[in-house]
Computed example of a mutant assay.
Amino acid sequence: MEIKDLTKAEEQLMQLLWKLEKAFVKELIAELPEPKPAYNTASTIIRILETKGFIGYEAFGRTHRYYPLISKVDYTRHQAQKLLTDYFENSIQDLFSFFMKEKNMNLKETDEILRIIDNIKD
């Protein structure tokens, strides 16, 4: 299944839904920072997420409780691969080098990353 990209507003609601696991639109709005969107705005974004295959719902009369169909891990994997492909020509070395330079990583942080890599290899 192909995972689609999300807009900033869609991703903001998905982050909340991943955190809450199941929620009604009003519960999602309650978790959003001020200024809170109108109910209709949030509801429209939820319908878009449903159309994109990100969420499903349980019907309770005329209201719906929504839940994720795509895990946060799967979406994170998709975004990481997109970052690697679109900006670093599929080179993990270039990606790592970029973050080392941008974050001004110290030797302790670099050693920790190398330790993680060694554990993955084992």
Rank of each mutant, 00 (worst) to 15 (best):
L13E: 06
I3V: 15
F98V: 00
M105Q: 12
R65V: 03
M14D: 06
M100K: 05
Q79M: 12
T51W: 01
Y67A: 06
D118H: 08
L20Q: 14
L6F: 13
K8R: 09
S97Y: 01
E2S: 05
L69V: 00
F98Q: 03
R62D: 11
K26E: 13
T76V: 04
K72L: 09
K36Q: 14
L49D: 01
H78W: 09
N104E: 11
E58R: 06
K72E: 15
H78I: 02
E58L: 07
K8L: 14
D86K: 12
T76R: 15
E31Y: 02
K101C: 09
G56F: 00
Q81G: 02
E109D: 05
P68N: 11
I120R: 14
A80T: 10
S97D: 10
S91H: 03
L49W: 00
Q79S: 09
K19R: 14
P33E: 13
T51M: 08
A59Y: 00
K26V: 12
E50R: 12
Q15S: 08
A23N: 12
K22P: 01
Y66L: 04
F98N: 04
I120N: 08
E112N: 13
M14C: 06
I48A: 03
N119S: 06
Q79Y: 10
I46A: 09
F96I: 11
E109H: 02
E2Q: 10
D94M: 11
F96Q: 03
L69H: 08
D118R: 14
L28K: 07
K101E: 15
V73W: 03
D118W: 01
Y87P: 00
L49S: 03
Y39C: 03
L17W: 02
K108R: 09
T7E: 10
T85E: 14
Q81P: 00
N106C: 06
K52A: 04
M105E: 13
P37I: 13
L20F: 04
T41H: 04
Q15M: 13
E34M: 05
E21S: 13
S43Y: 12
R65D: 00
M105I: 01
Y39A: 03
I55P: 04
P37C: 07
S97I: 07
Y66S: 05
E27Q: 13
L17H: 07
L84G: 04
E50A: 02
Y75L: 11
G56T: 00
K26F: 14
K22G: 09
L84F: 02
T63H: 06
D74C: 03
E102L: 06
Y87K: 14
V25I: 10
I29Y: 05
S43F: 09
S71G: 13
K101N: 07
L83N: 01
G61Y: 15
R77A: 06
R65M: 15
T110S: 11
A38V: 10
A23F: 07
I70G: 07
K82G: 04
E21C: 01
R65T: 00
L17A: 05
K108Y: 05
K82P: 01
V73E: 15
H78Q: 09
Y66R: 04
A30N: 12
D74M: 08
I45M: 01
F99D: 06
K22A: 09
M14W: 02
A59Q: 13
I117V: 13
I48C: 04
Q93V: 11
E89D: 15
I55N: 02
A38Q: 13
G53A: 14
M14I: 02
E89Q: 12
L16S: 02
M100V: 05
L13F: 00
L83G: 00
L13M: 07
